[in-house]
C-alpha cells in the first residue's frame, strides 16, 4: 500500500536520524555522536525561531516599507505580506525537515537557504541587526557535514572524522567573528587614545557606550544607571572583553577551554544586555550549543583543565599537565589510518 504511493521511500527518508549509527566504540566515535546531537539541537532551535517569526505574521501583513537586502530583492514584486508568510513558512518547514533528517545534505542546504532569506527579510527595514549572523554561518557550514556512505569500518571512521572536522569549522567561524571584533576594538582604542580621546581601554569607555546607547533609544537598561554613576566599574569588564574576543580564535585549537570560553562569552553578552539593553539572544544560544556543549571536551575533563590551557594561564600548571590539557581530543589530531 505504502509502496504504491511511494510512501515507503518517504518513510525511509523521514526515519529517525542516525538509526543505523556508525558511531560506537572509541572516544572519537562518542565525540562525533555528541556532535550530531548538537546538530540536532541547532535545527530544533531553528524550529523555535521559525515559529517565532511566523507568530509575528501580523508585522508582515501590516505591509511595512522595505529596504530589501539582496537575498530577498524579489520582495518588491510580491510585497512584504506575501513574502513574510512565504519565507517564514519555508524556513519553519525546512528547519523541521533538517531536524528530522539532519544527515541529509539536501535538507540542511534547504534550511540554510531559507534561513538566509528569513534573516535577510528580518533585516530589510533599514537596519541590519547581527544577532542571527553567527547562527546563519553555522547553518551554512553544516551543509558540508558528511552523509553516511557505507557500513565498512573505513567508511564509518571517515564519516565520524568528517563530522568532527566540519563541526570544528563551525566553532572556529564563531570564534573568528569574536576575534575580528576584538582586533577592531584594540585597533580603534589605540587610535583614539593616540589622539587624546577615550578609547576602549580607557576608564570611561563602557560608561560612554552605555550613555550613547541609552541616548539613541531614550531608553533604560537594568544596570545602566550603575555604570553611569560609577564609570570605573566598566574598566575590568572592558579588559576582560578584549581578552575574550581577541584571543577567541586561539580557543578553537584548545578544546579543553571551549566550555570556559563559552561561559565567558555568554557572560559578556549578558553584561551587554544588562548595561546597554542590547540582547544577542540567538548568539548566546549558538555559543552555548557549539562551545559550551563542545564534543571535543574530554568526558572526564576536570574543570581546571580548561583554565590551564587559557592563553596566559599556563603558569597555573606543570608542563606535564599542560600537555595533557592541550591533547584533549584535538580535531586535527584525528587521522584515518589507511
Amino acid at each position: 500500500m505504502t509502496q504504491a504511493f511511494g510512501l515507503s521511500r518517504l518513510w525511509r527518508w523521514l526515519r529517525p536520524p542516525m538509526a543505523s549509527s556508525a558511531l560506537t566504540g572509541s572516544a572519537h566515535a562518542r565525540a562525533a555522536q555528541r556532535a550530531w546531537s548538537i546538530v540536532h539541537a541547532v535545527y530544533a532551535y531553528n524550529v523555535y525561531i521559525g515559529v517565532t517569526l511566523l507568530k509575528n505574521w501580523q508585522r508582515w501583513a501590516d505591509g511595512p516599507v522595505l529596504d530589501p537586502l539582496w537575498p530577498v530583492s524579489w520582495v518588491t514584486a510580491t510585497g512584504s505580506a506575501a513574502a513574510g508568510i512565504l519565507v517564514g513558512t519555508a524556513y519553519l518547514g525546512t528547519s523541521l525537515l533538517a531536524l528530522f533528517r539532519p544527515e541529509r545534505r539536501g535538507a540542511r542546504a534547504l534550511c540554510a537557504v531559507s534561513a538566509l532569506m528569513a534573516f535577510a527579510l528580518h533585516n530589510s527595514f533599514g537596519k541590519i541587526n547581527h544577532t542571527y549572523h553567527g547562527l546563519l554561518w553555522v547553518l551554512i557550514i553544516f551543509v558540508f557535514l558528511p552523509q553516511p556512505d557505507g557500513q565498512t569500518h573505513h567508511a564509518r571512521r571517515r564519516f565520524r572524522q568528517q563530522t568532527l572536522r566540519i563541526f570544528w569549522a563551525g566553532q572556529a567561524a564563531l570564534l573568528m567573528f569574536y576575534s575580528m571584533s576584538g582586533a577592531l576594538k584594540l585597533y580603534a582604542s589605540i587610535n583614539q587614545m593616540a589622539k587624546g580621546q577615550a578609547g576602549f581601554l580607557s576608564a570611561e569607555a563602557a560608561a560612554r557606550h552605555v550613555a550613547h546607547r541609552l541616548l539613541q533609544t531614550n531608553g533604560e537598561s537594568l544596570l545602566g544607571w550603575l555604570m553611569l554613576e560609577h564609570p570605573w566599574i566598566g574598566l575590568p569588564t572592558q579588559w576582560l572583553t578584549i581578552y575574550l574576543e581577541l584571543l577567541a580564535f586561539l580557543i578553537a585549537f584548545r578544546p579543553a577551554s571551549h566550555r570556559l570560553w563559552a561561559l565567558g562569552l555568554i557572560g559578556m553578552h549578558l553584561g551587554i544586555g544588562l548595561f546597554m539593553d542590547i540582547w544577542f539572544i540567538h548568539q548566546i544560544t549558538i555559543v552555548a550549543l557549539m562551545l559550551a556543549c563542545s564534543p571535543f571536551v574530554r568526558e572526564d575533563a576536570h574543570a581546571l583543565d580548561g583554565l590551564r590551557t587559557l592563553p596566559g594561564f599556563a603558569w597555573l600548571s606543570s608542563p606535564g599537565r599542560q600537555r595533557r590539557a592541550r591533547d584533549l581530543e584535538r580535531p586535527q589530531a584525528v587521522a584515518v589510518k589507511e
Binding site: L69, W70, F119, I128, L136, K185, F200, R208, H209, H212
Partner: peptide, 15 residues
C-alpha cells in the same frame, strides 16, 4: 553585504 559583517561592534568609543 549581508551576511558578511566586519564585526565592528562598539569599537569606537563615543567622545
Amino acid at each position: 553585504i549581508f551576511p558578511i559583517f566586519s564585526w565592528d561592534l562598539f569599537s569606537v568609543v563615543p567622545n
